[in-house]
């Protein structure tokens, strides 16, 4: 993972600052950095978004395809996550260098969506056991400046909100076979209900306290962090401890409590923002990558 070298003196400065609830960039311990969200940025996808969090930039594209449902769950569609750590982000990712981080990120995403409530997978079914919609969620890391998990999860929620699945009709022919008919109108689309899609909050343990949305410098001072994916109702769909250190049970309980609070508060403004952007329609000013 992209890391920075931090000297001992710098570490002490950051640690003492966080102890007194002062971070290097002036934030409090539970504040996020400035965030920019733009949806519908890639025209070739069915749903896309770009999220900038500090200097972390993440691009998510969602493509829908008709596939065969998994035999275990014949009446549900499914999501397929892939995280590409591009060498644009850091030279460490060149060649196969980003593969390990990519698998780690995508496995966590599978885990966060591995429940019945996150997304109504039954609505992705076209005909049970035969056809369903498969959502290919491709994440591209363009810049790494800490807190990848949070940025990616927010970008995925925005992209899922933006996803337009073409409406299909199933008609039976005379011989008993079934045919799938795609609507002629490109605007005749189904939208997903993203209300329950979770957002990931990463809490970094620095000294005796924990911070939300750690920068790379702050991350270098921390031994372990806790990843939590939280829904708008405050339920937790996934937790994971990452990093080489261990944590006290009491501090884990403190962190889950803080994570739930922060994660829950993230959803309402995000949805409001997405709906606002959606209501602009074609008048929306596209910013793209030149912001």
């Amino acid at each position: 993972m992209a890391t920075v070298q931090v000297s001992e003196a710098e570490k002490v400065y950051i640690l003492h600052g966080i102890r007194d609830d002062l971070r290097v960039d002036g934030r409090g311990c539970e504040d996020y950095r400035h965030m920019e969200i733009e949806t519908d940025v890639v025209s070739n996808t069915d749903g896309s978004s770009k999220v900038t969090l500090g200097h972390t930039v993440v691009l998510v594209g969602i493509k829908t395809e008709i596939g065969k449902p998994r035999p275990m769950v014949p009446d549900e569609g499914y999501l397929d996550f892939f995280v590409d750590c591009s060498a644009n982000a850091t030279p460490e990712f060149e060649g196969r260098g980003g593969e390990e981080l990519g698998t780690e990120l995508s496995n966590t995403l599978y885990r966060a969506f591995n429940n019945k409530h996150s997304l109504d997978l039954k609505s992705l079914c076209i005909s049970p056991g035969e056809h369903c919609w498969v959502l290919y969620v491709d994440v591209l890391l363009l810049q790494c400046d800490g807190n990848l998990y949070d940025a990616i999860s927010i970008a995925i929620k925005a992209a899922l909100f933006n996803t337009k699945i073409p409406r299909v009709h199933i008609s039976a022919d005379d011989e008993g076979g079934r045919e799938i008919e795609l609507s002629d109108d490109p605007y005749d689309c189904v939208r997903l209900n993203v209300e329950n899609v979770p957002c990931i909050v990463t809490l970094c343990k620095v000294g005796h306290r924990h911070v939300v949305d750690a920068t790379l410098q702050e991350k270098a001072c921390s031994v372990a962090s806790l990843i939590m994916s939280v829904t708008h109702r405050g339920t937790v769909t996934c937790t994971r401890k990452v990093g080489g250190g261990s944590l006290d049970p009491e501090s884990i309980f403190e962190m889950t409590e803080a994570g739930k609070r922060v994660g829950k508060a993230l959803h309402a403004p995000l949805m409001k923002l997405l709906q606002q952007e959606e209501s602009l329609g074609r008048k929306k000013q596209k910013v793209g990558f030149l912001s």
Binding site: R111, N114, T235, V236, C238, R240, K241, I252, E257
Partner: peptide, 22 residues
């Protein structure tokens, strides 16, 4: 040492359930 070195969960749980589970 009373330290948690690994933690992983999935599904959909409330925070209280999670804490009790740990």
């Amino acid at each position: 040492l009373n330290q948690i070195s690994g933690l992983q969960s999935d599904g959909d749980m409330t925070e209280d359930t999670l804490t009790a589970g740990v």
